[in-house]
């Protein structure tokens, strides 16, 4: 535990002195804010139009759940955005250590390989949470200014979904970073892998296996307030698989030149 902590705090410390992490978080928040306000505008207008039309034709006002719609769309946009942002958080995790030779330091210290791998994984996950946290403010604003108040459960399950999706992407990103010494190569390969995992259901024509494998398809239910056990199992097993592959890859360094 102490060892995981040592690796974890070092990783996190390095993130917070790296301009890349600040740039990634900054740009993410600017874009997320932009999309949030556009989505809000759009649905507010929509609901006005519906109300106007209803009163024009003398019909009873229609139920239109603005905050619910906003949240759903917003989580949808964020889930797509992180496909682009997470590769930049994971690209250096192993590639840089290998390039600098610091992997040799870690691997000859009294740490197990899995302490190294989990420490790194938790550090990137923490940074991801830090990146996401300010978006809670949008949710708080939405909550305060809505009448009637939107159900909190929807926001909560949306965030659970985003965290699971993020953790899955991080596990995959770390594995890919462990395969190369170049963070640029790692970033491109990771992004490519995410795209494949994203669109894998497009050509499926109803093939259930491919649909099941699409990481975003598994996400769809969360912003509706539904936490599906099948999706939980899917993400959990993906994370475990990613971490396991990373461990294998780190172990294999012991048989090659580091």
């Amino acid at each position: 535990m102490k060892n995981i902590w040592a690796v974890y705090r070092k990783e996190l410390g390095l993130y917070f002195v790296s301009p890349i992490a600040y740039a990634v978080i900054g740009i993410f928040l600017i874009l997320a804010g932009f999309f949030f306000s556009r989505i809000l505008d759009f649905f507010v207008q929509q609901s006005f139009m519906l109300m106007m039309r209803a009163s024009q034709f003398g019909m009873p006002p229609q139920e239109f759940d603005v905050p619910g719609q906003v949240m759903q769309s917003f989580f949808g946009v964020v889930s797509t955005m992180i496909l682009f942002f997470i590769p930049m958080l994971t690209m250096g995790s192993y590639a840089e250590e290998k390039k600098r030779g610091t992997m040799e330091l870690l691997m000859t210290s009294p740490l197990t390989d899995s302490q190294i791998v989990w420490g790194k994984f938790l550090a990137t996950l923490t940074l991801f949470i830090v990146m996401l946290a300010p978006t809670l403010l949008y949710m708080v604003a939405l909550y305060w200014y809505s009448d009637p108040r939107p159900p909190l459960a929807v926001a909560a399950s949306g965030y659970v979904g985003i965290l699971l999706l993020g953790a899955t992407l991080i596990a995959v990103g770390h594995f890919i970073s462990s395969l190369t010494e170049s963070q640029v190569v790692a970033a491109f390969l990771t992004f490519g892998a995410f795209l494949i995992l994203w669109v894998i259901d497009a050509g499926s024509r109803g093939s259930q296996v491919l649909e099941y494998l699409s990481i975003l398809r598994q996400f769809e239910n969360f912003p509706k307030g539904i936490i599906d056990t099948k999706s939980l199992v899917f993400y959990a097993s993906f994370i475990v698989l990613g971490v396991f592959l990373t461990l294998r890859s780190v172990d294999s360094l012991r048989w090659r030149r580091a």
């Binding site: 790296s18 330091l105 870690l106």
Partner: peptide, 19 residues
């Protein structure tokens, strides 16, 4: 095996921890 973004003391503290 150095981390260029760390300070000398911070780095040695990290190594002491993992040792």
């Amino acid at each position: 095996p150095l981390y260029p973004e760390m300070t000398v003391e911070g780095y040695l503290d990290f190594v002491a921890r993992i040792k």
